[in-house]
Design a protein around this nucleic acid. Sequence first.
DNA 1: ACATCATATCGAACCGGTTCGGTAAATGAT
DNA 2: ATCATTTACCGAACCGGTTCGATATGATGT
Lengths: 335, 335
Amino acid sequence: MTTIRDVARLAGVSISTVSLALNSPKRVGAETLDRILQAIKSTGYRIDPVAQTLARGRSSLIGFVSANLGNMFFGDIRREIEHQALDHGYFVLIADSSGRADLERALLERLEAQKIAGIALAANGRGEEYATFLRDFKTPIVMFDQKVEGAERDFVGSDNPLTTTILTEHLLQLGHRRIGFISGPSGLHTADERLKGFMDTMAGAGVDIDPSLVVEGGYTRTGGHAQAMRLLTRRDRPTAIIGANNMTGLAALQVMQEMGFRCPDDVSLAMVDDVPWSNVITPRITMVVQDAQKLGELAAQRLLARIASPEGAAAPPQDFILTPRFVRGESTRRL
Amino acid sequence: MTTIRDVARLAGVSISTVSLALNSPKRVGAETLDRILQAIKSTGYRIDPVAQTLARGRSSLIGFVSANLGNMFFGDIRREIEHQALDHGYFVLIADSSGRADLERALLERLEAQKIAGIALAANGRGEEYATFLRDFKTPIVMFDQKVEGAERDFVGSDNPLTTTILTEHLLQLGHRRIGFISGPSGLHTADERLKGFMDTMAGAGVDIDPSLVVEGGYTRTGGHAQAMRLLTRRDRPTAIIGANNMTGLAALQVMQEMGFRCPDDVSLAMVDDVPWSNVITPRITMVVQDAQKLGELAAQRLLARIASPEGAAAPPQDFILTPRFVRGESTRRL
DNA sequence: ACATCATATCGAACCGGTTCGGTAAATGAT
DNA sequence: ATCATTTACCGAACCGGTTCGATATGATGT
């Protein structure tokens, strides 16, 4: 492996001059610069990113931490961030927390130890203490999807109450009153907001909510399945179900199929977020989708800006809230 | 940040002794070791992985490079590798090549510059020259899914010819003769093998193959969609279609739905590999699935073994071929 | 009691860069 | 012609570890 010293020797300059030539070429004499570049060419010199990181105290890696890469929603965001990062010379280190707050925290500390330049985080930790942890983190963090109150970080997300408000209004308009709601993990930002969107809309329409129809599916397939099963085995089962995310929504559909209910004839269904092959699923599910690509784009821009310059780093944290889009399917029918 | 020197000072020993205590504790006196550990505790010292990497010439990062993280198949493998890597103190750096060979190569070189400990690779590059590139790579590589002939690396994959052999025999038994085959990118290992499995089985059964029914869908959704469209708009369309992977298989189903064909009544369908929500897709698709988890497990074990010891590193490359499993759905019918 | 050997610890070189203070030459001001 | 300032480059310290040869001490063999 050729080092900066080899280049310096060949070009007949000191190593500090080579370093200078690499980092701020204009501060080096034109002719000297030429010789150095020539030497670099002929030796095939590649800068060692590890040594550079050690010396600079900062690497050119960006971390991406989320709960579930398998979920298309996070996958799309990841793709977009990765794309932009590569454009700016950054490499993306991806880590999957599996939704476990303790693991997530360990991952973040590990990333920090790697002197990572910045982190895009869909947080799963919660609470005062976690917010403090995030706030005091020295590495720039841009949070997406999940907002942690008190973390005082940039946040990119969707209008979550609106997602379920739209779905609930849609079902109310179709005449549904007994609506089951499979919520996400209570305490999680999006889960609480989506639940609130549902509750408020129901209350706003003067419809009583049967509390036993509001269950917690934890945003997971298995959780959604279990809770949908509970809802649908009741004698007084709901006429419609809302899944607070794609996993729980589809899990509900699966339960309907397993139990021989037809959707939407027997039970209507609506959910938040899309999945990759939704258009070959029968019936086409009515949903509210977030613009994952746009979210990723914003998150990446924000993070790169913070990393790039001291001014960017000093800017006050800002929230970016996108409006989700309603996609009508055939999984809901008029009562 | 506290460094090893702080610990040394506090424990009243030299920094080399601290390093020794950390790396081979048994070579340090019991009492000294105690003092050092105590000093580490009280200072909250964490070793700096970057400095360690620079000094050692090797990091504790493992790279995972594949074409498409969104595809559940790769996602499952990733999860398994990540899991095992974390258990052994390694961090997984994930990179998505989007199936582009040039990008993949750049990623690999970049990972190597990071002095990564090892790489799990689902290769998309092909050809003699690429094989040489992989063979001469200094970092341990374990390839999975896609085998590159001549790379002389460990390989973990499935019996690919068997995947399509099983599906083809199944369709032949049901009386199908005009079978459309949507292949993967020609030149890609699994694609070629799966195509061969189809061709050989047809030939073995004495059935003539209409070459125009064999199309290249490139393993992608869009490619599969376009080719399925071509197959299904023909006057003499096939009675059954095989998708060489999950993307192209589902794309074919989508085309059928768009064109108003019913599956399996009008056209039968079978494919290789599963997708996350296949059990809510109507009809349940007949498929041959690989054991992704097992593949990931084997790949991780192999890679960790190579990384761990010089003996492991020296072991001759070995192939691990798993047998795929047939899952009968309702997407194929007797003619 | 003396040579031999293992054990515990240390000092210094090294990994490959960055950065800052300093010097010598060139440029500009007066 | 003299002094001030800029420009181009260098030397050395530093980032935070690892590793190896050297040294001092104590144990073993005879």
